[in-house]
Design a protein around this nucleic acid. Structure first.
Length: 569
RNA sequence: CGGGACGUGGCGCAGUUUGGUAGCGCGCAGCGUUCGGGACGCUGAGGUCGCGGGUUCAAGUCCCGCCGUCCCGACCA
Protein backbone atom coordinates (compact mmCIF):
# COMPACT_ATOMS: atom_id res chain seq x y z
CA UNK A 1 0.00 0.00 0.00
CA UNK A 2 1.43 3.35 -1.04
CA UNK A 3 0.96 5.99 1.60
CA UNK A 4 1.18 8.63 -1.13
CA UNK A 5 -2.19 7.34 -2.33
CA UNK A 6 -3.80 6.53 1.02
CA UNK A 7 -6.18 8.90 2.84
CA UNK A 8 -4.24 9.35 6.07
CA UNK A 9 -4.63 12.93 7.24
CA UNK A 10 -2.33 12.94 10.26
CA UNK A 11 -2.25 16.07 12.38
CA UNK A 12 0.86 17.72 13.68
CA UNK A 13 -0.90 19.51 16.54
CA UNK A 14 -3.15 18.05 19.15
CA UNK A 15 -6.76 18.75 18.28
CA UNK A 16 -8.52 21.22 20.56
CA UNK A 17 -11.21 20.16 23.03
CA UNK A 18 -10.01 16.61 23.32
CA UNK A 19 -9.42 14.86 26.60
CA UNK A 20 -8.96 11.12 26.21
CA UNK A 21 -5.62 9.86 24.85
CA UNK A 22 -7.37 7.47 22.48
CA UNK A 23 -9.53 10.28 21.12
CA UNK A 24 -6.55 12.56 20.61
CA UNK A 25 -4.35 9.91 19.02
CA UNK A 26 -7.02 8.37 16.77
CA UNK A 27 -7.71 11.86 15.42
CA UNK A 28 -4.05 12.79 15.08
CA UNK A 29 -3.04 9.53 13.43
CA UNK A 30 -5.84 9.85 10.89
CA UNK A 31 -7.92 6.85 12.02
CA UNK A 32 -11.17 8.76 12.49
CA UNK A 33 -12.82 12.13 11.94
CA UNK A 34 -15.74 13.64 13.86
CA UNK A 35 -19.05 14.28 12.14
CA UNK A 36 -21.12 15.46 15.09
CA UNK A 37 -21.21 14.84 18.79
CA UNK A 38 -20.84 11.11 19.29
CA UNK A 39 -20.71 10.25 15.58
CA UNK A 40 -17.55 9.55 13.63
CA UNK A 41 -16.33 8.61 10.19
CA UNK A 42 -13.79 5.80 10.13
CA UNK A 43 -10.86 6.46 7.79
CA UNK A 44 -8.77 3.77 6.06
CA UNK A 45 -6.36 3.16 8.93
CA UNK A 46 -9.11 3.02 11.52
CA UNK A 47 -11.12 0.73 9.31
CA UNK A 48 -8.20 -1.67 8.92
CA UNK A 49 -7.80 -1.94 12.68
CA UNK A 50 -11.54 -2.34 13.23
CA UNK A 51 -11.70 -5.08 10.63
CA UNK A 52 -8.91 -6.91 12.40
CA UNK A 53 -10.91 -6.82 15.60
CA UNK A 54 -13.99 -7.98 13.72
CA UNK A 55 -12.03 -10.84 12.15
CA UNK A 56 -10.87 -12.08 15.55
CA UNK A 57 -14.41 -11.77 16.88
CA UNK A 58 -15.87 -13.70 13.94
CA UNK A 59 -13.28 -16.44 14.20
CA UNK A 60 -13.97 -16.99 17.87
CA UNK A 61 -17.72 -16.74 17.49
CA UNK A 62 -17.75 -19.21 14.59
CA UNK A 63 -15.41 -21.52 16.48
CA UNK A 64 -17.79 -21.54 19.42
CA UNK A 65 -20.68 -22.59 17.22
CA UNK A 66 -22.41 -19.26 16.71
CA UNK A 67 -23.75 -18.36 13.26
CA UNK A 68 -23.53 -14.97 11.66
CA UNK A 69 -26.64 -13.25 10.38
CA UNK A 70 -27.51 -9.66 9.65
CA UNK A 71 -30.59 -8.01 11.04
CA UNK A 72 -31.96 -4.61 10.11
CA UNK A 73 -31.08 -1.59 12.21
CA UNK A 74 -34.45 0.01 11.50
CA UNK A 75 -37.04 -1.79 13.56
CA UNK A 76 -40.79 -1.85 14.17
CA UNK A 77 -41.86 -0.47 17.53
CA UNK A 78 -44.45 -3.10 18.41
CA UNK A 79 -42.18 -5.79 19.94
CA UNK A 80 -40.43 -3.06 21.94
CA UNK A 81 -43.73 -1.95 23.35
CA UNK A 82 -44.55 -5.55 24.18
CA UNK A 83 -41.37 -6.00 26.20
CA UNK A 84 -41.73 -2.59 27.79
CA UNK A 85 -38.46 -1.34 26.44
CA UNK A 86 -39.96 1.27 24.11
CA UNK A 87 -40.63 3.12 27.35
CA UNK A 88 -37.68 1.80 29.33
CA UNK A 89 -35.15 3.02 26.79
CA UNK A 90 -37.09 6.24 26.40
CA UNK A 91 -35.09 9.03 24.79
CA UNK A 92 -32.00 6.83 24.45
CA UNK A 93 -33.73 5.17 21.52
CA UNK A 94 -33.72 7.06 18.23
CA UNK A 95 -37.30 7.05 17.05
CA UNK A 96 -38.73 7.88 13.66
CA UNK A 97 -42.00 7.70 11.79
CA UNK A 98 -42.45 6.34 8.28
CA UNK A 99 -44.67 7.90 5.61
CA UNK A 100 -47.62 5.85 6.78
CA UNK A 101 -47.29 7.17 10.28
CA UNK A 102 -45.90 3.95 11.68
CA UNK A 103 -43.47 4.29 14.57
CA UNK A 104 -40.01 2.87 14.03
CA UNK A 105 -36.82 2.80 16.04
CA UNK A 106 -33.14 2.50 15.28
CA UNK A 107 -31.87 -0.58 17.05
CA UNK A 108 -29.92 0.04 20.27
CA UNK A 109 -29.72 -3.77 20.63
CA UNK A 110 -31.74 -6.48 18.93
CA UNK A 111 -33.48 -8.84 21.33
CA UNK A 112 -36.84 -7.69 19.99
CA UNK A 113 -35.76 -8.54 16.45
CA UNK A 114 -34.02 -11.84 16.95
CA UNK A 115 -36.55 -13.39 19.31
CA UNK A 116 -39.50 -13.31 16.88
CA UNK A 117 -37.14 -14.54 14.17
CA UNK A 118 -36.20 -17.65 16.08
CA UNK A 119 -39.70 -18.24 17.39
CA UNK A 120 -41.05 -18.19 13.87
CA UNK A 121 -38.55 -20.54 12.35
CA UNK A 122 -37.09 -22.81 15.01
CA UNK A 123 -40.17 -24.20 16.73
CA UNK A 124 -38.76 -27.52 17.95
CA UNK A 125 -36.44 -28.48 20.78
CA UNK A 126 -34.58 -30.39 18.08
CA UNK A 127 -33.51 -27.05 16.60
CA UNK A 128 -31.84 -25.97 19.82
CA UNK A 129 -29.43 -24.77 20.93
CA UNK A 130 -28.81 -22.00 18.46
CA UNK A 131 -26.65 -18.93 18.79
CA UNK A 132 -27.05 -16.16 16.21
CA UNK A 133 -24.78 -13.16 15.97
CA UNK A 134 -24.14 -10.14 13.83
CA UNK A 135 -21.65 -7.32 13.57
CA UNK A 136 -23.82 -4.32 12.98
CA UNK A 137 -24.27 -0.70 13.90
CA UNK A 138 -26.16 0.24 17.01
CA UNK A 139 -27.88 3.53 17.79
CA UNK A 140 -28.19 5.05 21.22
CA UNK A 141 -28.96 8.68 21.79
CA UNK A 142 -26.72 8.96 24.83
CA UNK A 143 -27.20 11.81 27.25
CA UNK A 144 -23.62 12.76 26.81
CA UNK A 145 -21.33 11.24 24.22
CA UNK A 146 -17.73 11.67 25.23
CA UNK A 147 -14.13 10.64 25.06
CA UNK A 148 -14.08 10.11 21.31
CA UNK A 149 -15.01 6.55 20.49
CA UNK A 150 -15.50 5.51 24.10
CA UNK A 151 -19.07 6.76 24.30
CA UNK A 152 -20.78 7.40 21.00
CA UNK A 153 -24.30 7.41 19.59
CA UNK A 154 -23.65 5.24 16.57
CA UNK A 155 -21.28 2.33 16.92
CA UNK A 156 -20.42 -1.09 15.66
CA UNK A 157 -21.29 -3.93 18.00
CA UNK A 158 -20.98 -7.65 17.76
CA UNK A 159 -24.20 -8.89 19.32
CA UNK A 160 -25.05 -12.53 19.78
CA UNK A 161 -28.20 -14.22 21.06
CA UNK A 162 -28.42 -17.77 22.29
CA UNK A 163 -31.59 -19.84 22.52
CA UNK A 164 -31.76 -22.88 24.72
CA UNK A 165 -34.17 -25.47 25.91
CA UNK A 166 -33.73 -25.08 29.64
CA UNK A 167 -31.70 -23.24 32.24
CA UNK A 168 -28.96 -25.80 32.31
CA UNK A 169 -28.40 -25.53 28.57
CA UNK A 170 -28.51 -21.75 28.86
CA UNK A 171 -25.75 -21.88 31.48
CA UNK A 172 -23.67 -23.93 29.06
CA UNK A 173 -24.22 -21.46 26.20
CA UNK A 174 -23.29 -18.65 28.55
CA UNK A 175 -20.14 -20.39 29.66
CA UNK A 176 -19.17 -20.98 26.04
CA UNK A 177 -19.54 -17.29 25.26
CA UNK A 178 -17.62 -16.30 28.36
CA UNK A 179 -14.73 -18.43 27.15
CA UNK A 180 -14.98 -17.04 23.63
CA UNK A 181 -14.84 -13.49 24.98
CA UNK A 182 -11.79 -14.28 27.05
CA UNK A 183 -10.06 -15.59 23.94
CA UNK A 184 -11.11 -12.60 21.84
CA UNK A 185 -9.68 -10.04 24.24
CA UNK A 186 -6.67 -12.18 24.91
CA UNK A 187 -5.91 -12.34 21.19
CA UNK A 188 -6.36 -8.58 20.94
CA UNK A 189 -3.70 -8.24 23.60
CA UNK A 190 -5.99 -6.30 25.91
CA UNK A 191 -5.73 -6.41 29.66
CA UNK A 192 -9.33 -7.23 30.50
CA UNK A 193 -11.05 -8.10 33.77
CA UNK A 194 -14.18 -10.21 33.90
CA UNK A 195 -16.43 -8.73 36.55
CA UNK A 196 -19.86 -9.27 38.03
CA UNK A 197 -22.11 -6.53 36.76
CA UNK A 198 -25.54 -4.97 36.75
CA UNK A 199 -27.86 -6.00 33.91
CA UNK A 200 -29.35 -2.52 33.45
CA UNK A 201 -32.05 -2.09 30.80
CA UNK A 202 -31.18 -5.39 29.14
CA UNK A 203 -32.46 -7.31 32.12
CA UNK A 204 -31.90 -10.89 33.14
CA UNK A 205 -29.86 -12.41 35.93
CA UNK A 206 -26.27 -13.57 35.81
CA UNK A 207 -24.16 -11.22 33.79
CA UNK A 208 -20.53 -10.26 33.42
CA UNK A 209 -18.73 -7.27 32.04
CA UNK A 210 -15.38 -7.37 30.31
CA UNK A 211 -13.52 -4.33 31.51
CA UNK A 212 -10.38 -3.03 29.86
CA UNK A 213 -8.30 -1.38 32.54
CA UNK A 214 -7.70 2.29 31.65
CA UNK A 215 -7.18 5.54 33.54
CA UNK A 216 -9.74 7.39 31.43
CA UNK A 217 -12.34 4.67 31.90
CA UNK A 218 -15.82 5.78 32.91
CA UNK A 219 -16.63 2.56 34.69
CA UNK A 220 -15.44 1.78 38.18
CA UNK A 221 -14.81 -1.71 39.37
CA UNK A 222 -13.91 -3.08 42.76
CA UNK A 223 -11.36 -5.77 43.31
CA UNK A 224 -10.26 -7.75 46.32
CA UNK A 225 -6.50 -7.69 46.88
CA UNK A 226 -6.67 -11.45 47.43
CA UNK A 227 -8.07 -11.91 43.95
CA UNK A 228 -11.32 -13.59 44.97
CA UNK A 229 -13.74 -10.81 44.03
CA UNK A 230 -14.20 -8.53 41.03
CA UNK A 231 -17.33 -6.51 40.33
CA UNK A 232 -18.65 -3.38 38.71
CA UNK A 233 -19.32 -0.79 41.41
CA UNK A 234 -22.95 -0.77 40.32
CA UNK A 235 -23.24 -4.42 41.26
CA UNK A 236 -20.57 -4.66 43.94
CA UNK A 237 -21.53 -6.04 47.31
CA UNK A 238 -19.58 -5.79 50.49
CA UNK A 239 -19.80 -7.90 53.58
CA UNK A 240 -22.65 -6.66 55.71
CA UNK A 241 -21.29 -5.29 58.97
CA UNK A 242 -21.96 -7.20 62.18
CA UNK A 243 -24.68 -5.53 64.20
CA UNK A 244 -23.00 -3.78 67.09
CA UNK A 245 -24.30 -4.07 70.59
CA UNK A 246 -26.49 -1.08 71.20
CA UNK A 247 -25.62 0.83 74.32
CA UNK A 248 -28.01 3.03 76.14
CA UNK A 249 -30.58 4.63 73.92
CA UNK A 250 -30.48 8.37 74.09
CA UNK A 251 -33.74 10.26 74.11
CA UNK A 252 -34.93 11.74 70.85
CA UNK A 253 -33.91 15.39 71.06
CA UNK A 254 -34.43 18.25 68.63
CA UNK A 255 -31.48 20.52 67.86
CA UNK A 256 -31.45 23.73 65.90
CA UNK A 257 -29.43 23.54 62.71
CA UNK A 258 -30.17 26.71 60.77
CA UNK A 259 -29.52 26.34 57.07
CA UNK A 260 -27.87 22.92 57.45
CA UNK A 261 -29.48 21.20 54.51
CA UNK A 262 -26.48 19.03 53.69
CA UNK A 263 -24.62 16.37 55.63
CA UNK A 264 -21.49 18.51 55.51
CA UNK A 265 -23.31 21.46 57.05
CA UNK A 266 -24.82 19.30 59.79
CA UNK A 267 -21.50 17.77 60.76
CA UNK A 268 -19.92 21.23 60.80
CA UNK A 269 -22.58 22.75 63.01
CA UNK A 270 -22.88 19.86 65.44
CA UNK A 271 -19.23 18.85 65.42
CA UNK A 272 -19.89 15.17 64.68
CA UNK A 273 -18.55 12.81 62.03
CA UNK A 274 -20.71 12.02 59.02
CA UNK A 275 -21.12 8.35 59.91
CA UNK A 276 -23.12 9.39 62.99
CA UNK A 277 -25.74 10.96 60.79
CA UNK A 278 -28.50 9.15 58.94
CA UNK A 279 -29.41 10.43 55.52
CA UNK A 280 -32.93 9.88 54.33
CA UNK A 281 -33.25 10.23 50.57
CA UNK A 282 -36.72 10.29 49.05
CA UNK A 283 -37.62 8.76 45.71
CA UNK A 284 -40.75 8.50 43.71
CA UNK A 285 -41.42 4.97 42.49
CA UNK A 286 -44.48 5.14 40.31
CA UNK A 287 -47.12 6.63 42.60
CA UNK A 288 -45.40 5.54 45.78
CA UNK A 289 -42.80 7.27 47.90
CA UNK A 290 -39.67 5.38 48.87
CA UNK A 291 -37.28 6.51 51.60
CA UNK A 292 -33.73 5.22 51.33
CA UNK A 293 -31.66 5.31 54.51
CA UNK A 294 -27.88 5.24 54.74
CA UNK A 295 -25.22 6.64 57.04
CA UNK A 296 -24.32 10.20 56.08
CA UNK A 297 -20.91 9.22 54.79
CA UNK A 298 -22.39 6.84 52.21
CA UNK A 299 -24.18 7.39 48.92
CA UNK A 300 -27.35 5.64 47.88
CA UNK A 301 -26.77 3.51 44.79
CA UNK A 302 -29.79 4.21 42.62
CA UNK A 303 -29.11 1.20 40.44
CA UNK A 304 -29.49 -1.07 43.43
CA UNK A 305 -32.65 0.75 44.40
CA UNK A 306 -34.04 0.38 40.91
CA UNK A 307 -33.27 -3.32 40.95
CA UNK A 308 -35.18 -3.72 44.21
CA UNK A 309 -38.20 -1.90 42.84
CA UNK A 310 -38.09 -3.25 39.28
CA UNK A 311 -40.08 -2.89 37.09
CA UNK A 312 -41.42 0.31 38.66
CA UNK A 313 -39.39 3.27 37.42
CA UNK A 314 -37.62 5.21 40.16
CA UNK A 315 -36.53 8.82 40.24
CA UNK A 316 -35.23 11.09 42.99
CA UNK A 317 -37.61 13.61 44.51
CA UNK A 318 -37.84 16.91 42.73
CA UNK A 319 -38.74 20.21 44.35
CA UNK A 320 -42.38 19.73 43.42
CA UNK A 321 -42.47 16.36 45.21
CA UNK A 322 -41.16 17.91 48.41
CA UNK A 323 -43.69 20.69 48.19
CA UNK A 324 -46.73 18.54 47.41
CA UNK A 325 -45.88 15.94 50.06
CA UNK A 326 -45.06 18.50 52.73
CA UNK A 327 -41.49 17.26 53.15
CA UNK A 328 -38.79 19.61 54.41
CA UNK A 329 -36.10 19.40 51.78
CA UNK A 330 -32.71 19.00 53.43
CA UNK A 331 -34.25 18.16 56.79
CA UNK A 332 -36.02 14.88 56.10
CA UNK A 333 -35.84 12.15 58.71
CA UNK A 334 -37.48 8.72 58.81
CA UNK A 335 -39.54 9.44 61.96
CA UNK A 336 -43.27 9.38 61.55
CA UNK A 337 -43.54 8.05 58.01
CA UNK A 338 -46.93 6.56 57.31
CA UNK A 339 -47.54 3.10 55.89
CA UNK A 340 -47.67 4.69 52.44
CA UNK A 341 -43.93 5.30 52.50
CA UNK A 342 -41.69 2.31 51.87
CA UNK A 343 -38.66 2.63 54.16
CA UNK A 344 -35.58 0.84 52.88
CA UNK A 345 -32.31 0.93 54.78
CA UNK A 346 -28.80 0.00 53.76
CA UNK A 347 -27.25 -2.90 55.67
CA UNK A 348 -24.81 -0.47 57.25
CA UNK A 349 -27.71 1.17 59.08
CA UNK A 350 -28.57 -2.04 60.91
CA UNK A 351 -25.78 -1.77 63.45
CA UNK A 352 -26.18 1.91 64.26
CA UNK A 353 -27.96 3.66 67.07
CA UNK A 354 -28.60 7.16 68.32
CA UNK A 355 -28.67 8.62 64.84
CA UNK A 356 -28.58 12.27 64.00
CA UNK A 357 -31.10 12.93 61.29
CA UNK A 358 -33.59 15.43 59.95
CA UNK A 359 -36.50 16.49 62.17
CA UNK A 360 -38.87 16.98 59.21
CA UNK A 361 -38.94 20.69 59.80
CA UNK A 362 -36.77 23.38 58.30
CA UNK A 363 -33.57 24.18 60.23
CA UNK A 364 -34.06 21.39 62.79
CA UNK A 365 -32.40 18.01 63.23
CA UNK A 366 -32.78 15.36 65.90
CA UNK A 367 -30.25 13.37 67.86
CA UNK A 368 -30.82 10.00 69.45
CA UNK A 369 -33.02 8.62 66.69
CA UNK A 370 -33.43 4.86 67.06
CA UNK A 371 -35.38 2.13 65.39
CA UNK A 372 -37.92 0.81 66.08
CA UNK A 373 -38.61 3.30 68.86
CA UNK A 374 -38.49 6.40 66.66
CA UNK A 375 -38.73 5.14 63.13
CA UNK A 376 -39.66 2.08 61.14
CA UNK A 377 -37.51 0.15 58.66
CA UNK A 378 -39.46 -2.05 56.26
CA UNK A 379 -36.43 -3.80 54.86
CA UNK A 380 -32.67 -3.87 55.20
CA UNK A 381 -30.74 -4.50 52.01
CA UNK A 382 -27.58 -3.59 50.14
CA UNK A 383 -28.44 -0.12 48.97
CA UNK A 384 -25.31 2.00 49.16
CA UNK A 385 -22.53 2.79 46.77
CA UNK A 386 -19.51 0.71 47.55
CA UNK A 387 -16.46 2.53 48.82
CA UNK A 388 -12.75 1.95 48.70
CA UNK A 389 -11.85 -0.11 51.74
CA UNK A 390 -15.24 -1.74 52.26
CA UNK A 391 -14.88 -5.40 53.24
CA UNK A 392 -14.77 -8.02 50.49
CA UNK A 393 -17.95 -10.14 50.56
CA UNK A 394 -15.84 -13.29 50.36
CA UNK A 395 -12.95 -12.73 52.75
CA UNK A 396 -13.48 -9.32 54.33
CA UNK A 397 -10.27 -7.80 52.92
CA UNK A 398 -10.45 -4.09 52.06
CA UNK A 399 -11.73 -3.67 48.49
CA UNK A 400 -9.96 -1.48 45.99
CA UNK A 401 -11.56 0.61 43.25
CA UNK A 402 -10.16 0.99 39.73
CA UNK A 403 -11.16 2.58 36.41
CA UNK A 404 -11.95 0.73 33.24
CA UNK A 405 -13.72 0.71 29.90
CA UNK A 406 -16.50 -1.83 29.40
CA UNK A 407 -15.71 -3.53 26.08
CA UNK A 408 -18.07 -6.47 26.41
CA UNK A 409 -21.13 -7.43 28.43
CA UNK A 410 -22.82 -10.81 28.47
CA UNK A 411 -26.14 -11.76 30.04
CA UNK A 412 -28.23 -14.72 30.95
CA UNK A 413 -31.70 -13.49 30.02
CA UNK A 414 -33.81 -16.49 30.88
CA UNK A 415 -37.31 -15.79 29.63
CA UNK A 416 -37.05 -11.99 29.94
CA UNK A 417 -37.87 -11.62 26.23
CA UNK A 418 -39.27 -14.96 25.18
CA UNK A 419 -42.15 -14.67 27.63
CA UNK A 420 -43.55 -11.26 26.70
CA UNK A 421 -42.92 -11.95 23.01
CA UNK A 422 -44.50 -15.40 23.40
CA UNK A 423 -41.51 -17.07 21.79
CA UNK A 424 -41.99 -20.77 22.36
CA UNK A 425 -40.75 -24.07 21.07
CA UNK A 426 -42.27 -27.52 21.42
CA UNK A 427 -40.34 -29.63 23.89
CA UNK A 428 -39.75 -33.37 23.77
CA UNK A 429 -42.83 -34.05 25.86
CA UNK A 430 -45.00 -32.07 23.48
CA UNK A 431 -45.48 -29.08 25.74
CA UNK A 432 -44.72 -25.52 24.71
CA UNK A 433 -41.80 -23.88 26.50
CA UNK A 434 -40.25 -20.43 26.40
CA UNK A 435 -36.75 -20.24 25.05
CA UNK A 436 -34.04 -19.62 27.63
CA UNK A 437 -32.00 -16.85 26.12
CA UNK A 438 -28.64 -15.24 26.54
CA UNK A 439 -27.22 -12.17 24.86
CA UNK A 440 -23.65 -11.15 24.34
CA UNK A 441 -22.44 -7.69 23.28
CA UNK A 442 -19.01 -6.51 22.28
CA UNK A 443 -18.14 -2.97 21.15
CA UNK A 444 -15.80 -2.94 18.17
CA UNK A 445 -14.86 0.77 18.16
CA UNK A 446 -14.65 0.75 21.90
CA UNK A 447 -12.28 -2.19 21.79
CA UNK A 448 -10.09 -0.26 19.37
CA UNK A 449 -10.19 2.84 21.55
CA UNK A 450 -9.51 0.81 24.69
CA UNK A 451 -6.54 -0.79 22.97
CA UNK A 452 -5.17 2.66 22.16
CA UNK A 453 -5.70 3.66 25.78
CA UNK A 454 -3.64 0.69 26.88
CA UNK A 455 -1.04 0.92 24.12
CA UNK A 456 0.31 4.39 23.49
CA UNK A 457 3.22 6.60 24.51
CA UNK A 458 4.34 10.19 24.00
CA UNK A 459 5.15 9.53 20.33
CA UNK A 460 1.78 8.00 19.49
CA UNK A 461 -0.10 4.75 19.13
CA UNK A 462 1.62 1.41 19.51
CA UNK A 463 -1.02 -1.23 19.05
CA UNK A 464 -0.09 -4.90 19.18
CA UNK A 465 0.70 -6.24 15.72
CA UNK A 466 -2.58 -8.12 15.48
CA UNK A 467 -4.45 -4.81 15.67
CA UNK A 468 -2.10 -2.33 13.97
CA UNK A 469 -3.42 -1.17 10.57
CA UNK A 470 -0.22 -2.40 8.91
CA UNK A 471 2.47 -4.67 10.26
CA UNK A 472 5.45 -3.03 8.58
CA UNK A 473 6.14 0.37 7.05
CA UNK A 474 8.94 0.82 4.56
CA UNK A 475 10.15 4.39 4.89
CA UNK A 476 11.75 5.93 1.83
CA UNK A 477 14.13 8.33 3.53
CA UNK A 478 15.51 9.93 0.37
CA UNK A 479 12.92 10.19 -2.33
CA UNK A 480 15.32 11.87 -4.78
CA UNK A 481 17.68 8.90 -4.87
CA UNK A 482 16.65 6.40 -7.55
CA UNK A 483 18.48 3.53 -5.94
CA UNK A 484 16.77 4.17 -2.62
CA UNK A 485 13.39 4.30 -4.29
CA UNK A 486 13.90 1.12 -6.28
CA UNK A 487 15.30 -0.81 -3.31
CA UNK A 488 12.41 0.34 -1.14
CA UNK A 489 9.96 -0.75 -3.83
CA UNK A 490 11.65 -4.12 -4.08
CA UNK A 491 11.51 -4.66 -0.30
CA UNK A 492 7.90 -3.54 -0.24
CA UNK A 493 7.01 -6.08 -2.94
CA UNK A 494 8.94 -8.85 -1.25
CA UNK A 495 7.20 -8.26 2.05
CA UNK A 496 3.86 -8.12 0.32
CA UNK A 497 4.61 -11.43 -1.43
CA UNK A 498 5.48 -12.94 1.95
CA UNK A 499 1.96 -12.11 3.08
CA UNK A 500 3.02 -9.23 5.31
CA UNK A 501 0.65 -6.28 5.59
CA UNK A 502 3.07 -3.63 4.48
CA UNK A 503 2.84 0.06 3.65
CA UNK A 504 5.48 2.10 1.89
CA UNK A 505 5.88 5.73 2.82
CA UNK A 506 6.66 7.17 -0.60
CA UNK A 507 5.17 10.57 0.15
CA UNK A 508 6.94 13.77 -0.82
CA UNK A 509 7.81 14.50 2.77
CA UNK A 510 11.09 14.84 4.57
CA UNK A 511 12.40 11.84 6.43
CA UNK A 512 11.64 13.49 9.75
CA UNK A 513 7.96 13.81 8.95
CA UNK A 514 7.81 10.15 7.95
CA UNK A 515 9.51 9.02 11.13
CA UNK A 516 7.17 11.07 13.26
CA UNK A 517 4.10 9.77 11.42
CA UNK A 518 5.35 6.19 11.64
CA UNK A 519 5.65 6.50 15.40
CA UNK A 520 2.27 8.24 15.63
CA UNK A 521 0.44 5.61 13.60
CA UNK A 522 2.36 2.85 15.28
CA UNK A 523 3.50 0.40 12.64
CA UNK A 524 5.00 -2.40 14.78
CA UNK A 525 8.07 -2.52 12.53
CA UNK A 526 9.66 0.39 10.70
CA UNK A 527 12.11 -0.39 7.92
CA UNK A 528 14.11 2.61 6.72
CA UNK A 529 15.69 2.66 3.28
CA UNK A 530 18.01 5.64 2.88
CA UNK A 531 20.90 6.88 0.81
CA UNK A 532 23.43 6.28 3.54
CA UNK A 533 22.35 2.72 4.21
CA UNK A 534 21.95 1.74 0.59
CA UNK A 535 25.49 2.97 -0.06
CA UNK A 536 26.73 0.73 2.74
CA UNK A 537 24.43 -2.11 1.71
CA UNK A 538 22.17 -1.94 4.77
CA UNK A 539 18.70 -0.92 5.92
CA UNK A 540 17.67 0.21 9.38
CA UNK A 541 14.93 -1.37 11.42
CA UNK A 542 13.04 -0.15 14.43
CA UNK A 543 10.67 -1.98 16.72
CA UNK A 544 7.92 0.46 17.67
CA UNK A 545 7.07 -1.19 20.97
CA UNK A 546 10.55 -0.77 22.46
CA UNK A 547 12.18 1.76 20.17
CA UNK A 548 14.96 -0.76 19.67
CA UNK A 549 16.94 -0.17 16.44
CA UNK A 550 18.93 -2.61 14.36
CA UNK A 551 20.45 -3.00 10.92
CA UNK A 552 20.15 -5.67 8.28
CA UNK A 553 21.82 -6.31 4.94
CA UNK A 554 19.98 -4.64 2.08
CA UNK A 555 19.54 -7.94 0.28
CA UNK A 556 17.90 -9.59 3.29
CA UNK A 557 15.84 -6.62 4.39
CA UNK A 558 12.47 -8.29 3.92
CA UNK A 559 13.53 -11.39 5.83
CA UNK A 560 14.90 -9.25 8.65
CA UNK A 561 11.64 -7.30 8.87
CA UNK A 562 9.67 -10.53 9.07
CA UNK A 563 11.91 -11.79 11.87
CA UNK A 564 11.64 -8.55 13.77
CA UNK A 565 7.87 -8.59 13.33
CA UNK A 566 7.79 -12.07 14.82
CA UNK A 567 9.36 -10.66 17.97
CA UNK A 568 6.96 -7.69 18.13
CA UNK A 569 4.18 -7.74 20.71
C1' C B 1 -31.58 18.15 30.73
C1' G B 2 -28.79 21.11 34.70
C1' G B 3 -23.68 23.46 35.59
C1' G B 4 -19.00 25.37 33.15
C1' A B 5 -15.82 26.71 28.98
C1' C B 6 -15.31 27.64 24.00
C1' G B 7 -16.76 28.96 18.63
C1' U B 8 -11.87 33.88 14.19
C1' G B 9 -8.90 30.39 6.53
C1' G B 10 -7.98 22.93 6.57
C1' C B 11 -5.42 22.49 11.91
C1' G B 12 -3.56 25.15 16.38
C1' C B 13 -4.14 30.10 18.20
C1' A B 14 -3.86 35.89 19.00
C1' G B 15 -7.10 39.98 18.45
C1' U B 16 -12.75 41.08 22.22
C1' U B 17 -10.80 44.32 28.30
C1' U B 18 -10.92 50.22 25.90
C1' G B 19 -15.76 49.37 18.90
C1' G B 20 -12.16 52.15 13.86
C1' U B 21 -7.64 48.53 7.68
C1' A B 22 -8.73 40.62 10.16
C1' G B 23 -3.49 38.76 12.08
C1' C B 24 0.38 34.70 13.54
C1' G B 25 2.34 29.53 13.26
C1' C B 26 1.47 24.98 10.75
C1' G B 27 -0.71 23.09 6.45
C1' C B 28 -1.95 24.04 1.04
C1' A B 29 -0.21 25.85 -4.45
C1' G B 30 4.13 27.51 -7.64
C1' C B 31 9.52 28.14 -8.17
C1' G B 32 14.33 27.32 -6.19
C1' U B 33 17.71 25.37 -2.47
C1' U B 34 17.64 21.18 0.77
C1' C B 35 17.15 15.79 1.97
C1' G B 36 18.01 10.01 8.07
C1' G B 37 13.93 12.57 13.49
C1' G B 38 8.22 17.22 12.12
C1' A B 39 14.11 21.78 6.59
C1' C B 40 14.82 26.95 4.25
C1' G B 41 13.87 31.20 0.91
C1' C B 42 10.70 33.83 -2.39
C1' U B 43 5.75 34.17 -4.40
C1' G B 44 0.62 33.00 -3.84
C1' A B 45 -4.36 31.13 -2.80
C1' G B 46 -7.62 30.67 1.07
C1' G B 47 -11.83 34.03 6.16
C1' U B 48 -20.26 35.04 5.70
C1' C B 49 -14.92 36.20 12.60
C1' G B 50 -20.96 29.85 14.42
C1' C B 51 -26.18 31.88 12.96
C1' G B 52 -30.05 35.74 13.46
C1' G B 53 -31.54 40.24 15.41
C1' G B 54 -30.24 44.92 17.95
C1' U B 55 -27.11 49.40 19.53
C1' U B 56 -23.70 52.66 16.70
C1' C B 57 -21.29 57.08 11.77
C1' A B 58 -18.72 52.30 12.44
C1' A B 59 -19.30 45.58 15.51
C1' G B 60 -14.73 39.85 15.44
C1' U B 61 -15.17 43.34 19.73
C1' C B 62 -21.14 45.90 23.08
C1' C B 63 -26.58 43.88 23.99
C1' C B 64 -30.53 39.94 23.13
C1' G B 65 -31.88 35.23 21.14
C1' C B 66 -30.52 30.71 18.88
C1' C B 67 -27.13 26.78 17.14
C1' G B 68 -22.81 23.84 17.68
C1' U B 69 -18.49 21.61 20.19
C1' C B 70 -15.91 20.12 24.53
C1' C B 71 -15.68 19.37 30.01
C1' C B 72 -18.48 18.02 35.02
C1' G B 73 -23.30 15.02 36.84
C1' A B 74 -28.01 10.82 35.64
C1' C B 75 -26.68 6.08 30.80
C1' C B 76 -23.81 1.86 28.55
C1' A B 77 -20.68 -1.90 24.02
Amino acid sequence: MRLSRLFVPSLRDDPADVEAPSHRLLLRAGFIRPVMSGVFTTLPLGLRTMRKIEAIVREEMDASGAQEIRMPIILPSEPWKTTGRWQAYGPVMFKLVDRHGRELGLGPTQEEAVTPLVAGDLPSYRDLPVNLYQVERKYRDEFRPRYGLLRVREFLMKDAYSFDRDDEAMHRSYATMLDAYRRIFDRCGLEVLVVEADPGTIGGGTNHEFMAVADIGEDLYVSCPNGDYLADVEAARSRAPEPVATGDLEPLTEVSTPGAATIAAVTDQLGVSADRTLKCILFRAGDAVVAALAPGDREINEVKLERRLFPTPVRPFEDADFASGGYAKGFVGPQGFGEDVLVLADETVRGGANWITGANAADVHVTGANTPRDFRVDEYLDLSQIREGDPCPNDGAPLRIGRSIVVGHIYELGTRYSEPLQARFVDEDGTEQHYRMGCYGLGIERTMAAAVEQFHDDAGIRLPKVLAPFEVVVIVANRDDERVVSEADRIHSELSDLGIEVAIDDREETAGVKFADADLIGYPVQLVVGKRGVGAGTVDLKLRATGERSQAPLAEAARAAVDLLASAP
